[in-house]
């Protein structure tokens, strides 16, 4: 709980702030994750594009192997996103895993964090399985082609975005510090004065 603050009193007792709407609940982590999944599904890379990219220009045997890996990736995605979700959500999760692991060979701390941020707690075996699938899927393909594909379709690549506001502003992290007038030990003020309580 925050300690008592002047601005807290001003918010409560003066009429210069917006009235709080106590009926409106702020977003929690679960809702936020669902919203992120929704947003992710709406833009950038799609499962169909990945399927096409991994199977085009391949002979039949390689195509079959790739299809098998894609199926395994979907299965791992289903474990991560939760089996109560529909095909669309599972495919979107598979796309997310594909993007996350396209240039990795194992599940590191950063990848674990990224996946948890998107889906919440998940079985680590499913993350390992999806990483292995992506490694095997992309092994026969040229790195530069894969990078080009990701760059072109990734949701991070958004041509509408400008340069970040305030990038060049020098921000100081300096904070106010206690600045007492005197030490307790040096304070002798009124020490000897007797106050008469009438």
């Amino acid at each position: 709980m925050s300690p008592p603050r002047l601005t807290g009193a001003l918010r409560s007792f003066s009429h210069v702030s917006k009235n709080e709407d106590f009926t409106e609940k702020p977003y929690d982590l679960k809702t936020k994750r669902l919203k992120r999944q929704e947003l992710f599904a709406r833009e950038g890379l799609t499962w169909q594009k990945i399927v096409h990219f991994c199977t085009e220009h391949q002979d039949k045997a390689k195509q079959q192997a790739a299809s098998q890996e894609l199926k395994s990736l979907l299965l791992a995605a289903k474990q991560i996103v939760g089996s109560e979700h529909g095909q669309e959500a599972i495919e979107s999760a598979a796309v997310f895993l594909f993007e996350t692991f396209h240039n990795k060979d194992h599940v590191g701390t950063e990848e674990t964090r990224t996946i948890r941020q998107m889906f919440g707690p998940f079985p680590s075996t499913a993350a390992d399985a999806s990483c292995d699938c992506v490694v095997r899927l992309l092994a026969p393909l040229e790195n530069s082609r894969v990078e080009d594909f990701i760059q072109t379709h990734s949701s991070h690549h958004n041509p509408q975005r400008g340069s970040t506001f305030g990038r060049n502003i020098a921000f100081s992290y300096d904070c106010y510090a206690l600045d007492p007038l005197e030490d307790l030990h040096c304070s002798g003020i009124n020490e000897d004065q007797v106050s008469l309580d009438l």
Binding site: R11, S14, V16, F171, Y173, Y176
Partner: peptide, 23 residues
């Protein structure tokens, strides 16, 4: 739209004022 109000302005001063007073 209450993007700024007096308590918010006071909070901004006490949180960021030490090193960013000019801005």
């Amino acid at each position: 739209n209450f993007l700024f109000d007096i308590p918010k302005i006071l909070d901004l001063c006490v949180l960021f004022g030490k090193g960013n007073s000019q801005l």
